[in-house]
């Protein structure tokens, strides 16, 4: 009896082994990640984290990471569009959509839409996201988003909104979107840009601004000093269960800063689907969970065509908002 069991298990594992080798020889076993910013940045963390999970989970034999800074990520994007490298994927996030709306014409020599846009690369999948957050200091008189809107309606100049990047950036748009939903003219909200999330946070806590609009991830470190009065998620997130959503306060604002991967133009559909599937499957593994947990990422796996239609929708929303803000 036990012999038969043994035989079965040997046979079974042989078949498993065989099937594993056949699939892996067909699949992509090496990936090169192109990162449009330096080591230590958000894109860098996403690419290296994803690559680490993929290799540790055995889905890839090796992953390499190339940092290619310049033009706010435009250099790396132009490299993908112009050189069409094989076996290479690019990490990108919401600013790619904003970039394709606003500017940077004439950087591309290899054809395409003429601006650096997600349409010129092959969207593979969105993998993780960070929701926007409206934050005030712990001792602020504002307890919820309605308080801020009321104060704003009384005197639009009394609420100054800080953010960790320039006018027209994601931080600005998150806050503007919230005010717009509350029935205010987002263009009247005074936005005070800082050159990094940490400095905007310091500005808020020093009392020179009354609220901060930024990504939830940016304020996780200072959770003891601030009150998160609204996040742009559909429902509360597990890493910050005490942070209410704007939706539950009656302002249906939903915004996610996605991070995802793109292939070079001309990438075959088969390759695209394989990588997209791999990026989805890895999210079910404990190796991914370890990486995700330590970075407090939110899984928003969003592959292929769904990703494309999401990008189209986001482009439309952001174009409307940015027109109102007068940044385009």
């Amino acid at each position: 009896m036990s012999n038969i069991k043994k035989l079965f298990s040997v046979l079974f594992s042989a078949i498993l082994l065989f099937s594993a080798t056949t699939t892996s020889s067909l699949a992509i076993d090496k990936l090169h990640f192109v990162i449009g910013g330096g080591a230590g940045g958000g894109w860098d963390g996403t690419a290296r984290g994803t690559g680490e999970a993929l290799t540790k989970a055995g889905m890839l034999k090796s992953a390499s990471f190339e940092n290619m800074s310049g033009g706010g990520g435009g250099k790396a994007l132009a490299y993908m569009i112009n050189n069409k490298p094989a076996g290479t994927i690019l990490v990108q996030s919401t600013p790619l959509v904003l970039r394709s709306i606003t500017r940077h014409e004439g950087y591309v020599t290899g054809g395409g839409s003429g601006v650096l846009s997600y349409k010129d690369v092959v969207p593979i999948a969105g993998v993780i996201g960070d929701y926007g957050a409206i934050v005030v200091a712990k001792d602020s008189p504002f307890k919820n988003f309605k308080d801020i809107v009321d104060a704003y309606k009384k005197d639009p100049k009394s609420v100054k909104m800080a953010g960790g990047s320039v006018r027209g950036s994601m931080d600005h748009l998150i806050g503007a979107l919230a005010f717009q939903t509350a029935g205010a003219n987002p263009n009247d909200v005074i936005y005070v840009p800082y050159d990094a999330g940490g400095k905007a946070l310091a500005g808020l806590l020093s009392g020179e601004t009354q609220m901060l609009s930024t990504g939830l991830g940016e304020v996780m470190g200072a959770r003891d000093q601030v009150r998160i009065i609204g996040i742009t998620a559909p429902s509360r997130v597990s890493d910050a269960p005490d942070a209410p959503t704007l939706k539950e306060q009656g302002y249906d604002v939903q915004f996610v800063n996605w991070r995802g991967f793109f292939g070079p133009p001309g990438m075959s559909n088969a390759d695209k689907s394989k990588i997209a599937k791999m990026l989805g499957d890895v999210q079910k593994t404990p190796e991914w969970e370890a990486v995700r947990a330590r970075n407090a990422w939110v899984n928003i796996y969003n592959p292929d065509d769904k990703f494309v239609s999401f990008l189209e929708k986001q482009t439309k929303e952001m174009t409307d908002l940015m027109k109102k803000l007068g940044v385009i």
């Binding site: 230590g40 963390g45 990094a196 999330g197 940490g198 400095k199 946070l201 310091a202 806590l205 470190g221 200072a222 959770r223 003891d224 000093q225 970075n295």
Partner: peptide, 16 residues
Amino acid sequence: LGIPGSGTTAVMLGAL
């Protein structure tokens, strides 16, 4: 405070 003043301390905050 959990406020990073520079890129270096921002990376350290992430690690923390």
